[in-house]
Amino acid sequence: MRFAVIDLGTNTFHLLIAESTAKGFNILYKTNVPVKLGEGRINDNIIIPAAFERGINTLKDFSSIIEKHNVDKVKATATSAIRSAENGKDFVSKAKEIANIDIEIITGDKEAGLIYKGVKLSGAIQNTSLIMDIGGGSIEFILCDTEKLIWKKSYNIGAARLMQQYFKSDPISDDEKNLILAKVQNQLIDLFEICELHQPKMLIGSAGAFETFAELIIRKNNHSEDITTVKTYEFNFDEYIETTIKLINSTHDDRAAMPGMIPLRIDMCVVAALLANYIMGRLKINQLTLSNYDLKMGVLASLL
Rank of each mutant, 00 (worst) to 15 (best):
M163R: 07
Q165W: 03
Q165F: 02
Y166H: 06
Y166E: 09
F167A: 10
K168R: 15
P171D: 13
P171C: 06
I172H: 09
S173I: 05
D174Q: 14
D175S: 09
E176L: 03
E176F: 02
L179K: 12
L179C: 07
I180G: 03
A182G: 00
Q185P: 09
N186D: 15
I189N: 10
D190G: 02
E193P: 02
C195M: 10
C195V: 12
L197P: 01
P200I: 07
P200V: 08
M202H: 12
G205Q: 04
A207L: 04
A207D: 11
A209L: 03
A209R: 01
E211G: 11
E211Y: 10
E211C: 07
T212K: 06
T212L: 07
F213E: 13
F213V: 08
F213K: 06
F213H: 11
E215H: 05
E215P: 01
L216A: 07
I217C: 00
K220W: 12
N221F: 13
N221C: 07
N222M: 05
H223S: 01
T228E: 05
K231D: 15
T232E: 08
N236L: 01
N236E: 09
D238K: 01
I241D: 08
E242Y: 08
I245P: 00
L247H: 12
L247W: 03
S250D: 13
S250A: 13
S250T: 09
T251P: 05
D254R: 01
R255N: 11
A256C: 14
